[in-house]
Simulated scan of single mutants.
Amino acid sequence: MWELFLICLGVGVGAGLLAGALGLGGGVVIVPALIFLFHGLGFPADLVAKMAVATSLSTIMITSISAVRTHHKAGFVRWPVVLRLGVGIVLGAFAGAFIADAMKGELLTRLFGLFAMVIALQMALTGRKAPDGNLPERVPGAVGLGVAGVLIGTGSAIFGIGGGSLTVPFLSWCRLKMQEAVAIASACGLPIAIAGTLGFAVAGWQETRLPEGALGYVFLPATAGIVLTSFPFARLAARLSHRLPSAMLKKVFAVVLFVIGLRLVLG
């Protein structure tokens, strides 16, 4: 158990840095790490991916609070956009947990691996360039943002991420400033995490093969270890993201993420 706790502390550092600096919910680090860890602990193979995704979402509840407070103080969170996205996000994230529960564990693992590889390529091939200031924003209305929220929430819950991997590209397409896109993505991570965690807790409530310390599919000991470090490091990284370029960090992380994703796909 001590080894588990120490490993989760390290996972939390990486998750917090990504959540704060790049607008990623940290799930792109947490989920593959927990998949490998839970396999090593001998958890039922068909439950490993579901538990990793559910536990990832539970940690993002804490990480997102830390990051969004810092972004809010800096004045980058546009709350009307967050609220309109949030309605759809809650519905999508709760439903996404049950969709993931209906999948076979091996399929969910391979899908996450493919998702990780796509995100890695996206990060490696695109830069964080601000939209052309001469072009007007094209943010959809309440209905459009609600539909986008449903799609973002569903995908985020299935893959155990805070939504930044989906929200930031969408808001960039809407021609928002990158600082605002990252800040809004961090704020949207909270409803994603709450609704997704609740969905996985309910979906796994009747599962009898779960280890001690599990709440549905959420493995609480891992949650505790990760949030102890993800919370402060998310706050630190959010501050640094307002001052430092993150191009090098993105490209290095993209290489690591692609290798991890490939490993999950190949099994």
Rank of each mutant, 00 (worst) to 15 (best):
F94S: 00
Q206I: 05
I89W: 06
G162Q: 09
M61E: 12
F115V: 07
V48I: 05
I99R: 08
F170R: 12
N134Y: 10
C188L: 10
G75E: 08
P80E: 03
G196T: 05
A19V: 05
V168M: 11
A116L: 06
G199Q: 02
G86K: 05
M1A: 09
A185S: 14
G163Q: 05
G204V: 05
F5N: 11
A67M: 09
F200T: 03
A21I: 11
L171W: 03
R263I: 03
H72W: 13
H72E: 11
Y217D: 06
G16H: 06
I158M: 10
L37D: 00
A95G: 12
S64K: 10
T55P: 08
A234L: 07
V143W: 13
L135I: 12
V87C: 02
A234Q: 09
H72I: 11
D101H: 15
F253G: 03
A124K: 11
T197V: 03
I119Y: 00
T229V: 00
V82S: 02
M103Q: 15
C174N: 02
L125P: 07
T154Y: 12
P245I: 09
A157K: 07
V255N: 15
N134A: 01
V227H: 10
P232A: 04
G14V: 07
V147D: 12
G164M: 09
P169A: 07
T126I: 14
G105V: 01
G213T: 04
L135M: 14
I62K: 05
C188N: 14
F159V: 06
Q206A: 15
S246H: 14
P211N: 08
T59M: 05
L151K: 08
F98E: 03
G23Q: 13
Q179G: 13
V118G: 06
T63Y: 10
F43G: 03
A100C: 01
T223R: 09
P245V: 01
K104D: 15
E106A: 15
V87H: 09
F76C: 10
M51K: 00
G149N: 06
G20D: 01
G88A: 05
L262F: 14
F219K: 08
G216E: 13
A238D: 13
F98P: 10
K50R: 14
V202Y: 06
C8E: 02
V256C: 15
I192E: 01
K104F: 13
W205D: 12
I192W: 11
L210N: 00
G12Q: 08
V28T: 09
P44D: 01
R175L: 11
H39P: 00
G23D: 06
F170S: 15
L244H: 10
H242T: 04
L190P: 09
V252S: 14
L83N: 12
L244E: 01
G40T: 01
A247N: 12
G42L: 05
P44E: 00
G23F: 10
K50D: 07
V255L: 13
L176H: 00
M178K: 04
A124E: 12
G113W: 02
